[in-house]
């Protein structure tokens, strides 16, 4: 997330959405992570105001819910860009010049890992293994997987993604 980008307060509709999700999942065994997934899938992130709502409905402490949200790399408290590029940083991709690809991506996008382009078009994230280790280096752009990437191919894919000008 970008420094200084204050999260917008949630709307009444979003509040209702969160409570509806909690109601649908609360009777399942160990529901919290399922609820967090559902909230993030719907709202793009887990807004800070969601924590006390979920905690209250599950009869858990806010600290417990906050602790779970912050433990998992996948959960985020602010929305990402319109598109997300997830570059694999694990060993197999490193053995195929993954680090050079990562440097190239950061340079051409002008952002670091975990950051979003100023126009909100794209978030660059690190991922640790996509299971595409025989097709390294690998990445995901939104829900699409890509293997055997080169800087040129990555640039081409980002251009096709739209709203991104590497």
């Amino acid at each position: 997330m970008n420094p200084g980008a204050a999260p917008k307060p949630i709307t009444q509709a979003e509040r209702d959405e969160i409570l509806g999700i909690v109601t649908r999942h609360r009777d399942r065994p160990g529901p919290l992570i399922e609820i967090l997934h559902a909230v993030q899938d719907r709202l793009g992130c887990i807004p800070p105001e969601a924590v006390p709502l979920i905690a209250g409905a599950l009869n858990q402490s806010r600290a417990e819910v906050h602790g779970v949200v912050t433990f998992y790399h996948h959960f985020r408290t602010a929305p990402r860009g319109r598109h997300v590029l997830r570059l694999c940083r694990a060993e197999a991709c490193q053995s195929m010049r993954g680090r050079a690809l990562e440097q190239h991506a950061m340079r051409s996008l002008g952002i670091g890992l975990g950051e979003t382009t100023p126009d909100g078009g794209l978030t660059l994230e690190a991922v640790y293994c996509l299971g595409l280790c025989a097709c390294s280096p690998a990445a995901m752009i939104d829900d699409e997987v890509h293997g055997r990437l080169t800087p040129e191919r990555l640039d081409g894919l980002l251009r096709e993604t739209g709203g991104v000008k590497p």
């Binding site: 060993e91 293994c129 299971g131 280790c133």
Partner: peptide, 9 residues
């Protein structure tokens, strides 16, 4: 299956 280099699962 989080180990780099594995994809059998």
């Amino acid at each position: 299956e989080g180990d780099s280099g594995t994809f059998s699962d």
